[in-house]
Amino acid sequence: MDASANLVQAIGLGKQVETGEGMLVILDDINFVVAAGASVALLGASGSGKTTLLGLLAGLDRPSSGRVLIDGQDLEALDEDGRAQLRAERIGFVFQNFQLLQGLSALENVMLPLELAGAAEPRREAGELLARVGLEKRLGHYPNQLSGGEQQRCAIARAFAARPSLLIADEPTGNLDPHTGARVIELLFELNQARGATLVMATHDEALAGHCGQRLQLQAGQLV
């Protein structure tokens, strides 16, 4: 396989943490690649290490062993600010509990990544994105004035704002009722396709995983 076509490469990835009772192995020797434009479902029971793996892929945390390459760039070769820069330019996030900044309005939340990436017209672009997710009438509202589904739609708009090549989603429907969850997923895949991004999504929803082209199953910190 051509290395340049692989957007994400995990090589011998391991994560251990020190606890009172010795070392706890969370991830052990994880190896996989994700091709650019692919969609991957990361499946596993609660505590299997899904969220930790996503954190490592995005450079939010550092592995105990192994390395992660994004578009050929080794994350370990970058410092904290370098990784932040990389995220600003190439990675978008959707979280289970939305993670909108409470002090900023919906519009300001979506503007944030645009501004961090140095976009020319952050306000206009953010407005368009919010219209796209159906929140054009709620630009000035604060997160606590939005319903759960609205918050997640806002978060999706924010995730795609800076045109990331990689979208990382952590149980995006975990906090939503089935109906709202289905609408959000629709939107997520629609935007993903439209923008040609690569999607890595952690979930334990088999139906949701069925939408994805590739499945990775985690069990007790190992890929099975």
Binding site: A58, L60, E80, D81, A84, Q85, L86, R87, A88, E89, I91, F93, Q99, L101, G103, L112, P113, L116, A117, R158, A162
Partner: peptide, 15 residues
């Protein structure tokens, strides 16, 4: 928490 979130979104230390 908010600082961490901003960094996740790609904010550098200076920002």
């Amino acid at each position: 928490y908010e600082s961490a979130l901003l960094r996740t979104l790609g904010a550098r230390r200076g920002v």
